[in-house]
Nucleic acid binder design. Sequence first.
DNA 1: AATTTGACGAAGC
DNA 2: GGCTTCGCCAAAT
Length: 111
Amino acid sequence: MQPFTKSVIEIIKAIPEGYVMTYGQIAALAGSPRGARQVVRILHSLSSAHSLPWHRVVNAKGEIALQEEEARFMQILYLRGEGVETDENGRIDLARYRYDDMPERSPEIWL
DNA sequence: AATTTGACGAAGC
DNA sequence: GGCTTCGCCAAAT
Protein backbone atom coordinates (compact mmCIF):
# COMPACT_ATOMS: atom_id res chain seq x y z
CA MET A 1 0.00 0.00 0.00
CA GLN A 2 1.35 3.38 -0.99
CA PRO A 3 2.04 5.99 1.71
CA PHE A 4 -0.44 8.14 -0.09
CA THR A 5 -3.20 5.66 0.56
CA LYS A 6 -2.36 5.42 4.23
CA SER A 7 -2.34 9.20 4.53
CA VAL A 8 -5.76 9.40 2.92
CA ILE A 9 -7.18 6.98 5.45
CA GLU A 10 -5.67 8.89 8.37
CA ILE A 11 -6.89 12.22 7.08
CA ILE A 12 -10.44 10.98 6.66
CA LYS A 13 -10.44 9.55 10.16
CA ALA A 14 -9.28 12.93 11.43
CA ILE A 15 -12.21 14.92 10.04
CA PRO A 16 -14.08 16.22 13.09
CA GLU A 17 -17.78 15.79 13.65
CA GLY A 18 -19.79 18.54 12.11
CA TYR A 19 -17.35 19.17 9.28
CA VAL A 20 -16.75 17.88 5.78
CA MET A 21 -13.79 17.69 3.42
CA THR A 22 -13.66 17.34 -0.35
CA TYR A 23 -11.98 14.57 -2.32
CA GLY A 24 -9.49 16.99 -3.80
CA GLN A 25 -8.65 18.49 -0.43
CA ILE A 26 -7.93 15.10 1.05
CA ALA A 27 -5.80 14.03 -1.91
CA ALA A 28 -3.79 17.25 -1.76
CA LEU A 29 -3.14 16.92 1.96
CA ALA A 30 -2.05 13.35 1.39
CA GLY A 31 0.52 14.59 -1.10
CA SER A 32 -1.18 14.06 -4.45
CA PRO A 33 -3.02 17.19 -5.57
CA ARG A 34 -4.56 15.36 -8.52
CA GLY A 35 -5.35 12.14 -6.76
CA ALA A 36 -8.99 12.83 -6.01
CA ARG A 37 -10.05 9.68 -7.82
CA GLN A 38 -7.86 7.62 -5.56
CA VAL A 39 -9.82 8.92 -2.62
CA VAL A 40 -12.93 7.72 -4.40
CA ARG A 41 -11.46 4.27 -4.82
CA ILE A 42 -10.29 4.05 -1.25
CA LEU A 43 -13.67 5.00 0.12
CA HIS A 44 -15.43 2.68 -2.24
CA SER A 45 -13.43 -0.32 -1.10
CA LEU A 46 -12.39 0.48 2.46
CA SER A 47 -15.04 2.61 4.11
CA SER A 48 -16.58 -0.34 5.92
CA ALA A 49 -13.28 -2.13 6.60
CA HIS A 50 -11.78 0.85 8.38
CA SER A 51 -15.00 2.27 9.85
CA LEU A 52 -14.17 5.58 8.26
CA PRO A 53 -16.47 8.58 8.58
CA TRP A 54 -17.15 8.37 4.87
CA HIS A 55 -20.17 10.62 5.18
CA ARG A 56 -17.88 13.59 5.88
CA VAL A 57 -16.44 13.45 2.37
CA VAL A 58 -18.18 15.40 -0.38
CA ASN A 59 -17.27 16.64 -3.83
CA ALA A 60 -15.77 20.03 -4.68
CA LYS A 61 -19.19 21.62 -5.07
CA GLY A 62 -20.26 20.56 -1.61
CA GLU A 63 -22.67 17.94 -2.93
CA ILE A 64 -23.28 14.39 -1.83
CA ALA A 65 -21.29 12.31 -4.27
CA LEU A 66 -23.12 9.01 -3.90
CA GLN A 67 -25.26 7.87 -6.79
CA GLU A 68 -27.79 5.57 -5.20
CA GLU A 69 -30.75 7.30 -3.70
CA GLU A 70 -30.83 5.23 -0.55
CA ALA A 71 -27.15 5.79 0.23
CA ARG A 72 -27.54 9.52 -0.38
CA PHE A 73 -30.35 9.60 2.11
CA MET A 74 -28.23 7.87 4.72
CA GLN A 75 -25.37 10.29 4.28
CA ILE A 76 -27.70 13.24 4.68
CA LEU A 77 -29.06 11.72 7.86
CA TYR A 78 -25.57 11.22 9.31
CA LEU A 79 -24.57 14.77 8.47
CA ARG A 80 -27.70 16.35 9.87
CA GLY A 81 -27.18 14.27 12.99
CA GLU A 82 -23.85 16.03 13.41
CA GLY A 83 -25.25 19.45 12.75
CA VAL A 84 -24.32 19.78 9.07
CA GLU A 85 -27.20 21.29 7.17
CA THR A 86 -28.02 20.07 3.69
CA ASP A 87 -30.58 21.38 1.27
CA GLU A 88 -33.15 19.19 -0.46
CA ASN A 89 -30.61 18.28 -3.12
CA GLY A 90 -27.95 17.22 -0.65
CA ARG A 91 -25.94 20.42 -1.04
CA ILE A 92 -23.71 21.61 1.79
CA ASP A 93 -22.42 25.13 2.44
CA LEU A 94 -18.68 24.57 2.24
CA ALA A 95 -17.95 28.06 3.52
CA ARG A 96 -19.51 26.97 6.81
CA TYR A 97 -18.73 23.29 7.08
CA ARG A 98 -15.50 22.65 5.23
CA TYR A 99 -12.75 21.49 7.57
CA ASP A 100 -9.43 23.15 6.81
CA ASP A 101 -6.65 21.16 8.34
CA MET A 102 -3.96 23.70 7.45
CA PRO A 103 -5.56 26.99 6.39
CA GLU A 104 -2.17 28.63 5.85
CA ARG A 105 -1.50 26.13 3.07
CA SER A 106 -4.75 26.80 1.28
CA PRO A 107 -5.04 30.55 0.72
CA GLU A 108 -7.44 30.01 -2.14
CA ILE A 109 -10.18 29.06 0.26
CA TRP A 110 -10.13 32.52 1.81
CA LEU A 111 -11.74 34.02 -1.24
C1' DA B 1 2.50 -6.21 -18.17
C1' DA B 2 -1.65 -4.11 -19.90
C1' DT B 3 -6.25 -2.59 -19.10
C1' DT B 4 -10.09 -1.16 -16.33
C1' DT B 5 -12.06 1.11 -12.50
C1' DG B 6 -14.02 4.82 -9.98
C1' DA B 7 -18.70 8.43 -4.57
C1' DC B 8 -13.41 13.46 -8.82
C1' DG B 9 -12.05 18.15 -10.66
C1' DA B 10 -10.89 21.88 -13.70
C1' DA B 11 -11.74 24.02 -17.91
C1' DG B 12 -14.33 25.19 -21.85
C1' DC B 13 -18.67 26.22 -24.09
C1' DG C 1 -26.29 27.42 -13.68
C1' DG C 2 -25.78 22.73 -16.98
C1' DC C 3 -23.14 19.72 -19.99
C1' DT C 4 -18.94 17.59 -22.19
C1' DT C 5 -14.18 16.58 -22.49
C1' DC C 6 -10.03 15.57 -20.65
C1' DG C 7 -6.50 14.60 -17.12
C1' DC C 8 -5.67 12.12 -13.20
C1' DC C 9 -3.62 7.60 -10.58
C1' DA C 10 -3.29 3.49 -7.08
C1' DA C 11 -5.54 -0.73 -6.85
C1' DA C 12 -7.93 -4.47 -8.88
C1' DT C 13 -8.50 -7.45 -12.68
